[in-house]
Design a protein around this nucleic acid. Structure first.
Lengths: 159, 159
DNA sequence: ATGCCACTTCAAGTCGACTTCAAGTCAAGG
DNA sequence: CCTTGACTTGAAGTCGACTTGAAGTGGCAT
């Protein structure tokens, strides 16, 4: 498979795949001329990476979850930890969602008059104990890779 | 109140407050020399901002939720929309959490052997329909503002 | 054999929300 | 009056995950 094929199947732009390879997250089995050749296993690997990202791990952390020879070696305790963290996050989001949902239908003339809203405000204002200063951006939800590397080279000529 | 006082009470670094003022999110009621003077209302405002951020709005979007004269004007439909989005996100996270929690205790020798894990993988690999390409970073969870602007000016002398 | 152009590389740019730096100002205390 | 130093400013830097641009390469069809 060439990079475009992998990109299509994984729903990722080719540029991302090159970036991942550069980061050591994936490997090509060789080259055909300049062009990378991938074997089908890379798709599973990419799925694993996507999963890690969705779970909130950074690319570097995900990279650390593979043995040097390329097989996944997943620490069960890390998973449990992350599951707990997700659980916390979920609880906060649920509270937020409920608060917003209420505020959306609240009859109070101003939201500041609504007790529910004020409680929400308190929750937002007070520091949440667990959390890192630099929050990880969430994974970008595989796009249908429109265009990206498919830019035609020199259609309008005078580039 | 001077900026340090506001920073302390809101649990935000002073640099953030200056940044917020620059962005038009908050306003000082005047100056004492060079120094900003804030009135107490700014705290409620900051709480509102924190709430908006927690709900996933960007600073610009939050800014748009205030009238030019500075009172909050919150669109109930926007809240409802965001509540729904949060709900979706919550569902995804719950699935993820459950998957991770299972994987953490799964007896299969390799996670790739575990059907639950494989399903998780499928979910992560397949595109999630709703979502923007550029995900918003999550709000940073008000720190106890250790240090930041409290850098001593010239303690070690030779600055 | 030749030319096209899809791929390649490497460096630099982007995005959002801040933080950090260097240099400047000024209210207040001695 | 003069120093002190906490504040000020504007510009630049940071972080992570990519994207984009310009310039180069080479497999394949003609």
């Amino acid at each position: 498979m060439d990079i475009v094929e992998v990109a299509r199947r994984a729903g990722l732009p080719a540029s991302t795949l090159r970036y991942y390879e550069q980061k050591g997250l994936i490997t090509s089995i060789g080259r055909h001329g300049l062009r990378r050749v991938f074997d089908a296993g890379v798709l599973e690997r990419l799925a694993l990476i996507a999963l890690g990202r969705a779970a909130g791990f950074s690319l570097d952390e995900v990279a650390a979850m593979f043995t040097p020879d390329g097989r996944p070696r997943i620490d069960r305790r890390k998973l449990a930890t992350r599951a707990k963290q997700l659980d916390l996050k979920i609880q906060r989001l649920v509270a937020l969602r409920d608060g917003l949902a209420h505020a959306a239908v609240c009859p109070a003339p101003s939201h500041l008059q609504c007790p529910t809203f004020r409680r929400l405000l308190q929750g937002a204002a007070s520091a949440r104990p667990a959390g890192r200063a630099k929050p990880r951006p969430e994974p970008p939800a595989a796009r249908s890779h429109k265009g990206s590397t498919r830019r035609r080279a020199g259609a309008t000529g005078h580039a």
